[in-house]
Write a protein that binds this DNA or RNA. Structure first.
Lengths: 217, 217, 217, 217
DNA sequence: TATGAATGAGATTTCATTCAT
DNA sequence: AATGAATGAAATCTCATTCAT
């Protein structure tokens, strides 16, 4: 019995069925999240049957993984295209353009990315692609930051900035707050740039601080 | 049967049981996440019975809500204490102190907040609490920003910064990345401050941008 | 520990509590039926506690039995008062008066009587009182019928008539059909009387019938 | 999951399973009554699984309803065949034949009807089906009565007679009393006929009656 | 290749009854 | 005599996965 896996040889009919299942999965996971998504929802949306589903995927998680990998690849590709960061108008414009691409990609894949967190799938195959998208993203950004703002801890700064970008898009996408996308991108560009190049050395202003963390709450 | 709700009159014994259940809930949700958490895990951790659980909470979700509201309240309280923002060392130090408090609170409630994100997608009411929290947070921040950086759209900027602060803590807490807490707080302070006061007007650098959003993907 | 039973010595306070529980039980069983009635409903209605309930009754069934016995006694008392039946106006009027009493009693105890069937409590103590109310009732009626209409099988006829009387009241009481009580009683009187004294011998009209019962459906 | 409802398209296998479940339901409800019947009993009797049960019925009540509707339909069909009633031997014989059919149908569905009574109290929709049945029955009878005995209130008389017929069968079926079926049918025929045509106008015998209803109990 | 049907472990929830004060 | 709290067996229902055709 040829078990699961969408990488086996497929004839045209099978290919179409696989496509339908993937599309249906994307739709259902986006609409209901990983846990609330029912295999039944997926097969109904794909106009096929349970039996067929398990012909193409070994489990619900397997389908999710297939979809997540696509998203991850698109996102990792984007991360690689992050422009070098310098304190001039050209770099600013390039960053802006890049954030626009991010925004569009997020608009497309946001729901899946959100389900991702929910799915909590820690898995080797997924790891191969990028373990965590955020890590990949922040590593790319960190590389740019190391030359752009050597006085910042590139690793942490990258993390913070990726968090900002992702969450802003998330809030907007989830419609928890209603703002204009173009404005958001414009603002993000300025704040990211400002955060990197406008973050002067205020060491003098925080002398006793490290210690205070150890003081009682 | 005296149905659910932890707001009915309680004797010492009942109060203790309630406390045990809340503590157990926090522990279990933190350890396994909302979906994987079983009422059975909770009652075992609280060393009580299923029946007793439903004496205090009408459902697993109800318990989660009770815990989430506690967290939300603590967080909203913190938001109110956000200091005014000006471009000087004093404000910088105040922001730093505030971010330390945020960090500690997040360290305390992080696991719950993570489960929250997970629960959110399925449950609308839960989403409302979470959404409200973000809104409250960003409104407080927006109020400070309006005077601090009038050239930024306060609403959006606040959203972005809240996203950054929250996500950074989230990533760290989720141990996806291992960084020193004090360093994170220091960096966040600098990037937030820099993002606000270092975000000069680069309008000239983005002339054709609005249009580009309308171009096909 | 002085277990259950409402027949133990009771001080004034205890007596009042018992009374409240009985009243509450009557109300709750009437409103929701035996199975849907919750001990909790009863103790709430009686403004007392679960613990107290089991001080007076050994179980939910025990309470039901206590109430059922009261009803049964009232009904059996009524059955004994059934007047002799003769084919004259005097007897007709007496029957009418008796059916009025039945109607009133049923209005009072109907809900409990209905729960009775539902409760399906077959029990020795209950048996002592009357096993089945219907049996007692129809026996009394059968005794009157034996002299009134010797050509009818008194046992069966009594059963049928009791069924008619009880069900009519039931339908009206359950408001499944809306009719005037006085009219119902008037009509029942006429039909019962007519059924007894107007049921001439039509043996000739049913010669081959007994056999037909054995023919296939 | 293809949710419940036995009206979806079914292949032979599914049809057989459905049949098995219906048969098992009838058996279990008959044997234990509505409340004491467990879904587990049903699936065991049908030699299938819980999961399968819920594939065909959304709940225990749903199964009961399906069975009840079958019974109701059979009964309503019978009601329609009620012969016209006139005061002669032919009509008497026709009524007798009809009551035989009723008796057979009741013998067949009696156990379900008994469970019905039990379920009715709790469930309103079920009550509606039961109520409807009585209404339909008595309406058919009332139509015949209007020409047969215009001096009786057809509506109420029909109700009373239906009550008698149904309850007699019920008592016998519930084995509360042991009588010969043929004799019961014979007697019912005579009493019904007598009740209709032998119920002379005794208005003179009940002058003060209406008022007496208003006197205190 | 496809499918409808079946499965059953496991999750949540209820509620009569008992406990401890 | 009274009570709030606790219990846990038992019931219903869900749904990812496998079976049989």
């Amino acid at each position: 019995m040829p078990r699961a896996g969408q990488d086996r040889e497929l004839r045209p009919r099978g290919r179409r069925t696989l496509e339908r299942l993937l599309a249906a999965g994307a739709k259902v996971f986006a609409a209901r999240g990983y846990h609330a998504a029912r295999v039944d929802d997926v097969v109904k949306a794909a106009k096929t049957s349970h039996g067929t589903f398990y012909l193409y995927f070994s489990s619900k998680e397997d389908l999710f993984r297939a979809l997540a990998i696509d998203v991850a690849e698109a996102m990792v590709g984007l991360a690689r295209d992050l422009p070098p960061l310098t304190d001039d108008d050209e770099s600013f414009a390039a960053l802006h353009t890049w954030l626009e691409r991010f925004d569009r990609l997020y608009a497309q894949h946001g729901p899946m990315i959100r389900s991702w967190t929910e799915a909590e799938i820690v898995d080797s195959e997924m790891g191969k692609i990028g373990g965590d998208l955020v890590v990949q993203f922040s590593q790319e950004l960190a590389a740019r930051l190391r030359t752009a703002a050597p006085e910042l801890d590139a690793q942490i700064a990258a993390l913070a900035l990726v968090g900002m970008i992702e969450r802003s898009s998330y809030y907007v996408e989830a419609k928890q707050i209603d703002v204009d996308r173009a404005e958001l991108v414009g603002l993000l560009t300025r704040v990211v740039h400002g955060g990197i190049f406008g973050a002067g050395d205020r060491a003098a202003a925080t002398p006793a601080i490290a210690g205070s963390l150890e003081s009682p709450v």
